[in-house]
Structures are given as C-alpha cells and as structure tokens.
Design a protein around this nucleic acid. Sequence first.
DNA 1: CAAATTATGATGTGCGCACCTCATCACCGT
DNA 2: ACGGTGATGAGGTGCGCACATCATAATTTG
Lengths: 341, 341
Amino acid sequence: MTRRTLEDVARAAGVSLATADRALNGRPGVREQTRRKIENAAQRLSYRPDRAAAALARGQRWRFCFVLPLGDNVFMSQLAEAVRETAAWMAEERADIELVHVDVFDGPVLAHELARLGPDYDGFAVVALDHPAVREAIDALVLAGRHVVTLVSDVPTSRRHHYVGLANFAAGRTAGTLLGRFVGARLGAVGVIAGSLALRDHAERLAGFVQALSEVAPHLDVAATREGRDDRERTREATEDLLNAHPGLIGLYVIGAGKRGAVAALETARRAGDIVFVGHELTPDTRRFLLSGTMAAVVNQDAGHEARSAARVLLAYCEDRAINAAQERIRIDVFVKDNLP
Amino acid sequence: MTRRTLEDVARAAGVSLATADRALNGRPGVREQTRRKIENAAQRLSYRPDRAAAALARGQRWRFCFVLPLGDNVFMSQLAEAVRETAAWMAEERADIELVHVDVFDGPVLAHELARLGPDYDGFAVVALDHPAVREAIDALVLAGRHVVTLVSDVPTSRRHHYVGLANFAAGRTAGTLLGRFVGARLGAVGVIAGSLALRDHAERLAGFVQALSEVAPHLDVAATREGRDDRERTREATEDLLNAHPGLIGLYVIGAGKRGAVAALETARRAGDIVFVGHELTPDTRRFLLSGTMAAVVNQDAGHEARSAARVLLAYCEDRAINAAQERIRIDVFVKDNLP
DNA sequence: CAAATTATGATGTGCGCACCTCATCACCGT
DNA sequence: ACGGTGATGAGGTGCGCACATCATAATTTG
C-alpha cells in the first residue's frame, strides 16, 4: 500500500494535475466548486503531501534569528549552546539559525536591534524584556509578516505568536510547595533572594512562591526579599545579611543566579544542609549542591528543549503546520539528588 | 549563501559526481585514497546531504511496529494514544507505525508474536517482559537486521539497540527521597504497595525507594511490601491491611496502578492528606489526588515523549543517523500540585 | 452573439539525491 | 603485449512536488 500522491487526488477528482495543484496550494484560477471537489477527494484519500518532495521542489530555506542576552549567565550559556546544537539539526530541515547577542535588558536597544534585523529573517526567537519599546518592535515584526516567539521571558501583551518558556508563577509555586513541605513542622524564617524584581520572571516566581508557601506552611515567617543581581558576591552578602537578621532561618529560596555565593555564606555559617535551600536552573553548580545535600531541590527549565521547541514552532508557523502542544509545552522540572539526568 | 551539494564536494575533491556518490554512500569501487580525499572535501565544505532530496530519491518508507500490552491500564492507554499521535506525525517522515496489542506478560506468547511479526517490519518498539524467550526473540530480530528498542520496560541482557524508558531504580529513589523529606522528623511506619514484584520495573523502584528512604529518613520503619496486582480492589485491601497493621502509618508508596483503591481506603480511615502518599504516573486520577492534597507527589514518565522518542530512535537507526542523547533521555518527572501540565 | 474573461488541461522544468549502466583508463601479473 | 581487474567518468532516470507557460475549453459580459 503505497502513499497517495497528488496525481491520485487529481484522478479521483476528475481534474488534471495542474488544477489539483492550483487548488490545494491556494493559487488563483480555480472555481470554488472545483476546489471543493478536489479538497473532498484529498480528504477521502487522506492525501498528505510528501514533505520531502514539497521541500525539495520549493527549495526554500528559512532564516531564523535567536536573540539572546549578552553576558555570561550559566543558564544563558546553556541556552546558547543548545541553540547551536539546534542550528546544526535544523540545517537539515531547511532552516538556518543565527545566534545574536544583544543587551536585552535595555529595551530601546533591543527594540532597535529587532527592527534592524527584521528584514533579514523569517522568524525570531527572542529572550525579551517586557518593555514598551520591545513590545512595539515585536508587533512591527509580526505586522511585517515575520514570525516571532518569545523565549524564556515573555511579552504577553505583544502580538508574538508563541511563548516558549516556563509559567513562572507556577514555577515559583512549585518551589514554595517543595520548600514548605521539606521544612515540615519546624518553625522559623524563610529567606528569598531574587536577581532583580524588575525582571518579570523573577517577580512572578516570587509571587508564586509566597502564595504556595503561605498555603502549605502558614506558620513560616517570610523575610523581606533581598536582591542579588544574579551576582555571586552580592548573593553571598545578601545571604549573610539574612543569616544575621534571622538566626532561626530554616529555608532559603534563590530565584536567580549566584547560588554559589549563597552556598559560600551557608557554609561559612555552618548551616549548609541544615537550611532547606531551593533554587532554579540545573547547572554544574546546582547539580553538585544537590548531590552534597546543600540544596534540597532545583526547579528547572530545560534549555535544550526550549531551543528545539522554539525552532520547531517557528518552522511550523512558517510552513503553516499545526503545533503539537504536548510536545512544545515547557515542563517545570523538579530535580532532587536522585533524578538528575 | 546557498547550501553545499554533492556536486560541490565532487568538484572540490576533483572527482566526478558518481565517484563522490559511491564514496559517501559506502558503495564499492572506490580506492581508499580517493575515498579519503572525498571525505575530506565533504568535511571541509561541511557538506550535509539534503534529507529531503535523499528521502525522495530513496523513496523508501520504514515500517515500525509498536507492541503494547493488552489490558486497560491507564498509563498504557495514554501510551497507546501517544503512539497513534506519533504515527500521524511520522507518516510525513516516511515511516508507517502500526500498533499491536499482545499479552506481554506471557513470555512465550510475546516471543512468538515477535517472531511472527518480524518479517513485516523494519523496526520494533516493545514493552517487553524480561523473560528468556523474549530475550531470544529480540536477539533473533536484531540478528535478522531489524531494529529493536525496548519501551517502558527493558530487557537489558538482550541485543536491543536502545531502551526508551525510565531508570526505575532512580525513579524509586526519587519517590523515596520525596516521601522521606515530606514526612520530615515524624516517627512512624511507611507502607509500600507494588503491582507485582515479578515485574522488573516494580522491583527496581522498590529497591531504589527503600535505599533512598533509609538514607534520608533512617528513623522510619518500612512495613512489609504488599502486592496490589495493579488492581483497584486489591490495592484497597492491601491499604486497609496496612492501616490496620500499622496504626502509626505516616507514609504510603504505591508503585503501580490501583491508586484509586488506596485513596478509597485512606478516605474511609479518614487519613487522606494526613499520610504522605507518593506514587507513579500522572493520570486524571493522580492529578485529582494531587490537587486535593491526597497525594503529595507523583513520579512520572511522559508517555508522549516515550512514544516520540522510540519512533525517532528507530528512524535514526534505520537511516544510520546519530541520536540526540539529551533529547531522547526519558526524564524522571516530579509533579506536585503546582507544576501540573 | 461576439468578445472578453476565466477555468482548465497539457506539458515541461528543476530541486538534490540514490542508483544504474556503460565506456574508458590505469595498472596488474604473466 | 596480453587479457583481467578494479577505479573512475559520463550520463541517464525517477522520486513527488511546486511552479511556469501556453493552448484550449467554458463561462460571463456588453
């Protein structure tokens, strides 16, 4: 039982190959009635165009641009590496991916870059700051017929086609529930160190964390949130500050980067492993901290999955194909020391 | 900058298209020296054959057979549905997937079916019982040039090419660590109900669970393991039995199916939400139990991912392409009520 | 009803590759 | 110098489709 070809459809519909082709590819010059006849035949035969042949004939290659932040954040490095791997793979799917680093934390700069890059690409995956200028730049790209997905960090009010990333509120809730249940009935304070609350994702995680924690462990006392700026040294200082202000600290949630600083402070105070420490993103560091017992759990987003998903989604939009929602949903991974990959 | 074609490689190597083709496709009639020259040129130009064109020219379609258990286990139903979705998707990748249900718990029957199906397919994904007859059947398939992956349940001593499924020992450890940490400092007994310890995956999960629990909560008392046969009623009885034998029960681990029975028993005894209940596989039931607080955590394997992964791996083997290990690794998902998909 | 318009058919081309045949050429041992 | 052997070149074919052109048939319009 060989596959149906366009010729089968044409024959079944009683038209020529040319007409069937025109009809199914939405080209003009086909009566509505004939078009329906052909579409019915295609349906009946469950005709699916051979992707390989179509691709070959079209000979088109898509150009995608991935815009990532400047700077050497571990997670972003993982993401960049994942994008490079994805690029190698997508090259065989007729898509060329280029990776551009931009200071995404400066709205106008990012917006300007997007506008500049616009004409060169069919699709964009952007780690986007939620800033009015960025929103406008994204909308302009979409209106110009480009496809845009936001990556890791969303701009929900823009016209972007898709968001590839975590539900950050739920991720924060997950951290809160885990920390609350790990602490158990013990009494004391819980500290939180965010990168910066100006970032949408950190603010959302914090809100989720506080909400879930208050549900599962209402007896706990949440200390005022410190900002660690995703920096090791500042996170260390913030942790020391927390330990001084709350001698009865029993839980610590670090939302952003800089976890090595927190661990250094915990170790100096001889509280490592004693305080329930939960954070985000699986890196060589956090992996080590899980195994040593210093961290209790890590809530993670899979950079490889995000890169692949963004590429698949862009390709699907370009080729006007359906998206497999289950496959493209970014999971909120929970890692303890036993289920590390 | 257009893509490199085979013609570019041939020209760069100073040979004809025919020779380059022979060399890169491993056909005979090429001197070793010439072959190297061509391979170097291909490398230099970073030549990647256009998959679409190759597929079209080869015109080959692969036939894969997915062998799943008879019976109406919820997880297996999810898996079957995922296989059907994967089949629809793989149809465009030149692979036809057929789904066969067999009584996989009967080694000789399964082995006989595999032998019977062997000639009809290029690849098999089998939910396999670890039984000598099955191992031999798998080995025979492999020796006959078929590609075989085990799915969900492995036969590690066979010649199967790949295992698509969980590391069950680690999954058990994950459950143990979570349960132990959730219980905290409380004293009491922990009950375990397995489907059947004759199944390799349940036995491995149990061993992992006990090991991790003894590390994280050595003060806990693990009750003798009951068998629930993956059946609701028997699991209910086993749970009641546990509750009677251990009035101080504070934790419950259900390795297989039948969790509704366990919950019924817990509710009757008015212990739901009080006892820390951890189990496997996210289903509509366990999802509800997480949200209601009856279950504390679910350790899951993603049926959709497993189906897609098995198909991708089979295709990669058939086309002699590399496998993306990171993409194909089956995660040990941890779900609490806050990170449900 | 003729002219203009539109729908359809017939036919061809090329995408990049796999695979085939046949001719040629270099090199081998005898 | 001979035939035998293996390496290589030259060229063709077809995969299924997108897309183009031109001729012809059907339909609409003034």
